[in-house]
Amino acid sequence: MKRTNIHPELVVVTGAGSGIGRAIALRFAAAGAHVVVSDLNRDSAAATEAMIHARGRRACAARLDVTDPSAWEAFARDVLADHGVPDVLVNNAGMLVSGAFVDLTPADWDRQLSVNLLGVVHGCRVFGQQMIDNGKRGHIVNIASAAAFTPTPVMSAYSVSKAGVKMLTECLRLEFGPKGIGVSAICPGVINTNIGEHAVTVGVDEELVARGKELTRRVQDAAAKLPFSPLSPDLVARAAQRAVRYDLAVVPVRAEAWLGYFLLRIAPGVNRRIAQPLDVERIERVGRRVLRLIDPTSSEPAGAQAISAPIEVSR
């Protein structure tokens, strides 16, 4: 791999109020960049900004609704006026809509695609134009998912959105590459974030949803206590930095993501069937086993029988 000559001094990160976005903002700030921390929740963005300042690094916070093209235009103008053209843009903001395909309404699809896919489109457009007009090297990092290449039941909208992000990234590499702008897709597997906590579940009993979220929370809490952090969002942050440093096209994160990435190429039929047998009861059993593996002292809550959706704790 050949190193690029990009040394990020100004980095813009969306969805940086928590999870993967916060980890990415912290890591780029630690490397010396001024980070523009944006999030739909202004208070969450401010909390990340405060964490960066507490470490003696530079950041500023802003509210951004990634589904609003006019908000993107205004945000890009403000960044340009206050700080200049970013060296790196990280399109991280995302959410999860899950449910059986026939239960998803047009509004569910609009909600999923407007955040996960069109939000990335808008960011690439406004900041890509700035980078092109400025005439200097830059890089765009789009946070996709292992779901981009491994189909999963009851997550069709999410998987389509992330597959779209991956394909958009590869198309833009061809367009932006000759102009000195790299574009990368990061595809995490299971990562400890709160995406499941804020997920929209369609056509599922609310009591089962609550049970699923409780089991997910317990797995996350147990994983956070481990010294080697196997589900840490910082794994994705490091991958984002590596993508910029070496201008990588697609970067899977964690073993399950790499497995899907290679199976898609060498055994696509197997890849399509990997998740086919999954149902909510089996997913719950897997979640319980993971919890016992991470924390052998944990006890199963009384009455827990099934959960509503996969323990989807990644981006």
Rank of each mutant, 00 (worst) to 15 (best):
R3A: 10
L10Y: 09
V11P: 04
T14P: 00
A16M: 02
G17I: 01
G17P: 05
L26Q: 00
F28H: 02
V35W: 02
L40S: 11
T48D: 13
R58N: 15
L64K: 14
P69K: 05
D78Y: 13
V79K: 00
P86H: 00
A93E: 04
L96Q: 04
T105G: 13
A107N: 11
L113D: 15
V121F: 08
V126E: 14
Q130D: 05
K136T: 10
G138F: 04
I143R: 04
A146D: 12
T150C: 01
P151T: 00
Y158S: 04
G164W: 02
G164H: 02
V165C: 10
M167K: 12
M167W: 13
L172G: 02
F176G: 00
P178H: 06
K179E: 07
G180F: 06
G180H: 06
G182P: 06
A185W: 08
C187V: 11
G189P: 08
I191C: 15
I195G: 07
H198R: 08
V200E: 13
T201S: 03
V202W: 11
D205N: 07
L226F: 02
F228N: 10
S229A: 11
S229G: 05
D234Q: 01
V236S: 08
A240C: 06
E256R: 03
R265E: 00
R265W: 01
N271H: 08
V280W: 04
I283A: 15
R289F: 14
V290R: 05
R292C: 12
P296W: 02
P296A: 03
T297K: 14
T297P: 10
A309C: 12
P310G: 12
I311R: 13
I311M: 12
R315W: 06
